[in-house]
Design a protein around this nucleic acid. Structure first.
Lengths: 191, 191
DNA sequence: GTCTATAATGGGATAGAC
DNA sequence: GTCTATCCCATTATAGAC
């Protein structure tokens, strides 16, 4: 595989496991099997690497969300799939998703990277809001309220549940924290 | 005031604004007006400072929760007060509370500090669970479900809402993310 | 595109005088 | 308890040969 992609893959794994400050070019060089200086050829500054990471991640998630919409007709099924994305990203409590890792390491990030992160959050909220608007129509979600507030609550819940789950190294915390959310999406709710 | 306390105060502010890696003994020395070496007299290692921070924080929150129970009789009023603790700690989007800052900076913390953090989370969940059990009795909270799951969901929601709110530097995100939670606590729900 | 070598910086930490 | 002076180390980053 292309060296640049290999670097991004290893860097992403490191960021999600140990945070943005938790890995250095030295670590990455050892992982990948090249020298520090060679990484600088692909990503002159660490901020360039961070930017490419969040850019690639945003694109990937965007694709997944489109796939979900193509595959699942009801709002409830779409939200279940969204929940599963966060659940799967936890990797048993060892990792968080890249957006949580970047939100957490916000103080070390440059402005362009933070802009990308905020853009990603905006896109997520927009997608969720649209799904909750659909929910108000198809009745597949119990107790619907304001779609934008629901969207922001969902994003906060997923990110917070990942955060505390990794702190405790225990996935069951994520499951408990999101249990009530998931139960609103029960197939039994479809009329 | 006592130097040790002054150091803790400034360190806490720095951690909550810029994260655990976002401040150094050099910064702290400049803020407080003494030399780096003098800080090492009070806190030999940075991990000692971190431990004292979370210890003091846990004690302070514990007092606040006891006060809330003494002051507010209903479960709904207690949860509203709990929500207000997190709301106030945001300081307009400039800060997060110490437990969120530490959860986010988890990779840089030593084991004793992480244990304190997890103990704090356990205590918070216990307190919330007790309140949600009370809610099932006094009927002051709408749509009650499993108390432990509710407790973990509440903690995750508060921490996640702070995280995304600080990333966007916008308190209104916290308010929107927690709006549905708060509306379940409306005084109108009391029977 | 990868390497060796080397800055340059900043952080945590210690010794020992006052 | 505070200071000056210093150490050690990790980290990011650059120069220039191959």
């Amino acid at each position: 595989m292309d060296t640049r992609t290999t670097l991004l893959d290893h860097a992403e794994r490191a960021v999600r496991q140990r945070g943005y400050n938790g890995f250095s070019y030295a670590d990455l060089a050892r992982d990948v099997g090249i020298r520090k200086a060679s990484i600088h050829h692909h990503f002159p500054k660490k901020a360039d690497l961070a930017f490419s990471l969040i850019e690639r991640y945003a694109g990937r998630v965007s694709e997944r969300l489109a796939e979900i919409c193509a595959r699942e007709p009801t709002a409830a099924a779409r939200l279940r799939a969204y929940h599963q994305l966060y659940r799967a990203a936890l990797a048993g409590g060892a990792q968080v998703c890249l957006c949580v890792a970047f939100s957490a390491g916000r103080d070390s990030l440059t402005d362009p990277v933070l802009e990308q992160l905020n853009a990603f959050h905006r896109d997520s909220v927009d997608w969720l809001q649209t799904v909750f608007e659909q929910a108000a129509q198809d009745g597949s979600v119990a107790a619907p309220s304001d779609p934008q507030a629901e969207a922001r609550a969902t994003l906060a819940l997923m990110e917070g549940a990942q955060l505390v789950s990794r702190a405790a190294k225990d996935v069951s915390h994520f499951d408990q924290a999101t249990a009530a959310f998931v139960s609103r999406l029960s197939p039994a709710q479809i009329h």
